[in-house]
Amino acid sequence: MNILVLPPFNEAQRAVIEAAATGASFTYASSAEATDEAIATADVIVGNLPPARLALARNLRLLQLNSAGHDAYAAPGIMPAGAALANAVGAYGQAVSEHVYTMVLMLMKHLDGYRDDQRAHSWTDRGPVTTMAGAQVLVLGTGDIGQHFAQLARAHGAHVRGVRQRLGAVPDGFESIHTMNELPELLPKADVIAAFLPSSPATRGLVYAEFLARCKPIAYFANGGRGDLVVQADLIEALEQGNIAGAALDVTTPEPLPADDPLWSAPNLLITPHVAGQFHLYTVLDNVVRIAAENLRRLQAGEPLVNEV
């Protein structure tokens, strides 16, 4: 079995993946460096090969993505016939939740403003701050990332409710689980709303003028899922009017966000360029290689794959 590995695994991580597929031949190359021949002869590709190059993968049995998102690969005609597609759900919970949680705390403590004051050499007191202790936190999306975020908030004494499509068991970190239909009643009670939702017809444009109008003026909104969740013009207006206290975005529409986009200048808004995940935190690649190794083992054993799309 020929396995093409694209993520920048270190030696220890390579040892993990190689141990899962005894006798296989491994080729390591970045996505840009992978040759047409390596793609054409690969039985398994680990990593996010550009979708257009998948047409070369005539022997492909499994594409194991290094991302949780898989939209670009699920479109008709992208995956070679007979090849399985699996994502890396479960690899990014710690990284994304810590990043977004930190952004919210920065807003609550005015650290973004104090950073601006430092650069302006201005000794300014920005007044009262808020806390996660005792806060009512609403998490949209209760998967791996949402659960990690909930656990962080609970550790600081927050009361955390989760929102997802269907009811079910209450995951760790949450006090209760609710459906999307309950959002109109939940939003006015929340001090923090954190969203970790995938892009879908049900979620696109979910955060718009009416959604924001139901929020407390002291509430903070954060989005670590997909940019198309938010109608950005409505968010700008809500921030300018003081309808919410602040917002933190690691995702926008489009990406990269154009330099002249008005979102950059919205008050009380923190933006990071979709970097909460990626490979910046070392645990991400550890998790990706663990998922990939398990699926290599399962593929050889003829067992059902994990995270199969």
Rank of each mutant, 00 (worst) to 15 (best):
I45W: 00
S67R: 04
R290M: 12
A238N: 09
L270D: 01
A222P: 00
K189G: 10
L186K: 02
I45M: 10
A202Y: 05
I17N: 00
S30D: 03
V104T: 08
N243R: 15
S122W: 12
D228I: 01
A55Q: 13
A74L: 15
A20M: 12
Y282K: 15
A120R: 06
A219F: 12
L152T: 01
H110N: 13
L6H: 08
A88D: 02
Q241W: 08
E240Y: 07
A55M: 12
S31H: 08
V100W: 01
F196L: 13
T131Y: 14
A83D: 09
E294L: 04
S200E: 10
A169K: 13
V192N: 00
V309Q: 10
G47P: 02
N295A: 11
A158S: 14
G77R: 04
E210V: 10
A38F: 03
S67E: 10
T203D: 03
H159R: 11
V288L: 05
W123D: 13
Q136S: 14
A194T: 04
L186P: 12
K109N: 12
V163G: 01
A213C: 11
G23V: 05
P198L: 05
A81C: 09
G225I: 03
P8N: 14
V207G: 03
D250E: 08
H274A: 09
M103N: 02
Q151W: 09
E175F: 14
V129P: 00
G113H: 06
V192R: 00
S97D: 04
V306E: 13
G157C: 09
A68V: 05
A20G: 11
A293E: 02
I3E: 00
A24E: 13
A293V: 06
N181W: 03
L296D: 06
L212M: 10
